[in-house]
Computed example of a mutant assay.
Amino acid sequence: MFTIEERDSIRDRLLALAEADSAIIGAAVTGSQAVDGGDRWSDIDLVFGVDGPLEATMRRWTDLLHHDFAAIHHWDLPASSAVYRVFLLPSGLEVDLAFGPAAEFGPNGPSWRTVFGHPAPRADAPSPSRRELTGRAWHHALHARVCIRRHRWWQAEQWISALRGEILALACLRLGHPTAYAKGAHLLPADVTTPLTATLVHALNQAELTRALSAATSSLLAELTLVDQTLAARLAPVLTD
Score class of each variant (00 low, 15 high):
Phe2Ile: 08
Phe2Val: 08
Thr3Val: 10
Ile4Glu: 13
Ser9Lys: 11
Arg13Lys: 15
Leu15Asn: 08
Ala16Cys: 06
Leu17Ile: 09
Ala20Pro: 01
Ala20Phe: 04
Asp21Thr: 14
Asp21Gly: 06
Asp21Ala: 11
Ser22Met: 06
Gly26Arg: 06
Ala27Asp: 08
Ala28Asp: 06
Val29Pro: 00
Gln33Met: 13
Ala34Val: 02
Val35Thr: 12
Gly37Asn: 03
Trp41Gln: 05
Asp45Ala: 01
Leu46Thr: 05
Gly49Asp: 04
Gly49Pro: 03
Asp51His: 07
Gly52Met: 10
Pro53Met: 05
Pro53Arg: 01
Leu54Ala: 13
Ala56Val: 15
Thr57Trp: 04
Met58Ala: 14
Arg60Trp: 11
Asp63Thr: 13
Leu64Met: 11
Leu65Lys: 03
His66Ser: 07
His67Gly: 07
Asp68Gln: 15
Asp68Met: 09
Phe69Trp: 12
Ile72Trp: 06
His73Glu: 14
His73Leu: 12
His73Lys: 11
His74Leu: 00
Asp76Lys: 02
Leu77Tyr: 09
Pro78Gln: 13
Ala79Ser: 09
Ala79Glu: 07
Ser80Asn: 14
Val86Met: 07
Val86Leu: 05
Val95Arg: 08
Phe99Val: 14
Phe99Leu: 12
Gly100Trp: 00
Pro101Phe: 08
Ala102Pro: 06
Ala102Cys: 05
Glu104Ile: 04
Pro107Ile: 08
Gly109Glu: 05
Ser111Tyr: 12
Arg113Val: 02
Thr114Ser: 11
Val115Met: 12
Phe116Thr: 06
Ala120Val: 15
Pro121Gly: 09
Arg122Ala: 11
Pro128Gly: 10
Ser129Lys: 00
Arg131Thr: 12
Arg131Gly: 00
Arg136Val: 04
Arg136Trp: 11
Ala141Ser: 15
His143Gln: 15
Ala144Cys: 11
Val146Gln: 11
Ile148Asn: 00
His151Asn: 13
Trp153Arg: 00
Trp154Cys: 12
Ala156Val: 02
Glu157Ile: 00
Gln158Ser: 03
Trp159Thr: 02
Ser161Cys: 04
Glu166Val: 02
Ala169Leu: 07
Leu170Ala: 10
Cys172Arg: 02
Leu175Met: 15
Leu175Gly: 07
Gly176Asn: 10
His177Ile: 08
Thr179Lys: 04
His186Gly: 13
Leu187Asp: 12
Leu188Ser: 13
Ala190Arg: 11
Ala190Cys: 08
Val192Gly: 09
Thr193Val: 10
Thr193His: 00
Thr194Leu: 14
Gln206Ile: 03
Glu208Ala: 12
Ala212Phe: 00
Ala212Asp: 00
Leu213Met: 10
Leu213Asn: 01
Ala216Asp: 01
Thr217Lys: 01
Glu223Asp: 05
Leu226Glu: 13
Val227Gln: 13
Leu231Met: 03
Arg234Lys: 06
Leu235Ala: 06
Leu235Lys: 04
Leu239Asn: 01
